[in-house]
Amino acid sequence: MKRYWSKTLLVFVTALLPFTLIAQQPDIVGDVTGNVGSALEKATNIISAENILTAIVILFMIWLTTRINNWSMKYLVKRFNRHRLKILRAQPIINVLLWIIGLFSLIFTLFHPSQEALMAMMGSSALALGFAAQDIVKNIFGGLLILFDRPFQIGDRVNIDNSYGEVMNIGLRNTQINTLDDSIVTVPNAKIISDNVSNANSGALDCMVVVDLWLPIDINVETVRKIAFEAAITSRYLNIDKPVVILFFDHFDATPSTNVKIKAYVLDARYEKAFAGDVTEAAKKALKSAGAYNANREMKKLE
């Protein structure tokens, strides 16, 4: 303990030594006082009430402009539903640009930084950000990459990290997905750029839906093909401008069965599940009345 106190005293005295030396030199003291005074004056000029108020107003204006942008995009989406995805694509880019332009103009108009100061500020910011906010920076760069590289856009149906749904928002730090059970999943952008992403519609309004029907192996293929085809083309959710394809695959597992795949396009990716449900319902009803599908027989087979 005694040793500890003596060590602390030594450090304290060593630290004070330069100050005692400076105090003995009147010229040096005068310079330092002058410098500190000018720095303090500059700082007081920068952090004046007027400047703070201006900064607050500008930040509020930027925030308000992004809100107006979001609102106008929502209106445009409603008005021109057909071009929904293109409009939504522009929304985050405009917001990011608004913030960048706003913040830069704020710094340049209020602080008039010199080139050296700017470089120093950027250097120190980079260093500080590098250490303190490594993950955040990674996410921000991820967000920028997503915005400009476009692996997906707002409105696309994507599967990221086992979460499948519609991209609702691409932010600077994270991306939000509305899953089929109406949950909002927030995925950090850094994770998205390092993981595999599957995109079902890639910017198009419609997307392909595959409806699987499992039927007995001895079905009448001709009848089933007609029913499956008509179940798809009569669905109100069908994109009638695209083709409908029916495929058959036999499976010889524990219970031999035929897998009928109905491949068709839904008019809007948002109605993907409604379309699949509608086609399944219609096909099942028709198959049952045609005698091609018998639930009791299937159950017995399973037993």
Binding site: F80, N81, R82, L205, D206, N239, I240, D241, L267, D268
Partner: peptide, 8 residues
């Protein structure tokens, strides 16, 4: 129908 049901 064209704008909301994607009918061409």
């Amino acid at each position: 129908f064209h704008s909301r049901l994607n009918r061409n």
